[in-house]
Amino acid sequence: MPSETHATETLRAEFEATILPHFDGAFRLAMWLIRDRVEAEDVVQETFSQALQSFHRFQRGSNARAWILTIMRHVRANRNRTRRRSPLDLDGEDQLQRVPAVEQTPQHVTAGEILEALAVLPAGYQEVVLLCDVEDLSYREIASVMDLPIGTVMSRLHRARRLLRTALAEYAAGQGIGRRDEDAGDNPNAQVHGESR
């Protein structure tokens, strides 16, 4: 039936326009959180295939990025369950109790430094920070993607920032962030975190 084909084509075109632009972002997030390229590719491919199949359920006008990231989190959780890997949220609460309060946010932090600092946070905290800062989701959207109460999202963000400030301050004390001004060719993208290919 031509009308049905037309409808499918329209849906596909809409999918390409609204969902596919988030492919690169979703992959980067998967790559960061999973730290294994092959697994990240499998997760992302499965995520976008599922998204295409359930695209008719996507609420027009809502945040497409939040939608795709929610699907991706389900895909990751399912794969971890069937492979009996550890659950997604390694809280590391105990590690956080000992963090001294650094109230001043350091300036002139380079790309490499911020990614290094982020990498030492517990996984669940890294994810909250990335969904907020990189994916630009609201607290409510983060809560929905991660299936957490909104209060937990806020307290995690608060603690994650404190951890980041502390890590960056330690970094500055040990290696001298201010010194970076001299490194003219300093590549911000070099070695962002444990190479995992």
Partner: peptide
């Protein structure tokens, strides 16, 4: 800075081959 670092890190970028494969899969 974090956002820019994340979006431009070559380590995190998908392979062009993979992107092309998934695209053709999704768009038919």
């Amino acid at each position: 800075t974090l956002r820019a670092a994340f979006e431009h890190s070559p380590t995190l970028a998908p392979d062009t081959r993979f992107v092309a494969d998934v695209r053709s899969l999704l768009t038919g």
